[in-house]
Write a protein that binds this DNA or RNA. Structure first.
Lengths: 108, 108
DNA sequence: ATTAAATTCGCCTTTGTCGAATAAATAGAA
DNA sequence: TTCTATTTATTCGACAAAGGCGAATTTAAT
């Protein structure tokens, strides 16, 4: 059965989409990941992940209005769904819990 | 090239090993993951991840002294390395940053 | 020898990754 | 106006890395 939890990159993309609010589309997401995470990534990787997150219903999308720039296709704008938000929150909570449980001397 | 970053499960295992301090070995890790993360996982999956983390030098291991229990092999005890710790901290820091950047209305 | 407790092996699925192909919108030429 | 070159974006197809399982193997006590 298709996975229901979040891969590492999937979670990052979710966070970035939330960051970008109403400007979250492929290229912007790619740029943002590279800047905020200091990590190289191609545009096709981004789209691949976006598509999978949509299949999992953690993201939804709509086409933007045509802009006044040079040319090119309309942007596909993404937004985090309620269940995407829940997945993000739950994943964060779990990790916070685990951090809290680490004894001091573990990192001496 | 073999990946240098942390997969989702890899990060969890690192956290659990730190939690277990000096009792981190296969079975204990499996049990702890199931309890703390509410997620089913087999012992071979755990060992698989453990091995990968060791190859990445985020974990190191040593054999325990034989115990006074019934029988069986000696436990392979794991501990987070300095660079494993750095990976954990960096990963957490990055995500905290991203959470901080999410505008209020993103989750209206 | 048997049995118990643990780790290793082989195999498959899902997630991460990229380069190349394709699509759509606009500006300017004919 | 119609065409076409250029720009901006998304989709496709292939492969590598990480996640996952059941069965096999190893080792230590009884």
């Amino acid at each position: 059965m298709k996975g229901t939890n979040l891969g590492e990159l999937e979670e990052i993309v979710l966070l970035i989409v939330a960051n970008l609010y109403d400007m979250a589309y492929g290229v912007a997401i790619k740029v943002e990941i590279e800047e905020k995470c200091g990590r190289k990534i191609t545009i096709s990787t981004v789209h691949n992940v976006l598509q999978r997150l949509q299949e999992k219903e953690f993201l939804e999308s709509r086409y933007s209005e045509p802009t006044k720039e040079r040319g090119g296709k309309r942007k596909l704008l993404f937004r985090v769904t309620k269940s995407g938000q829940e997945a993000m929150v739950s994943s964060r909570g779990m990790r916070e819990e685990l951090w809290r449980g680490i004894p001091e001397l573990a990192f001496k």
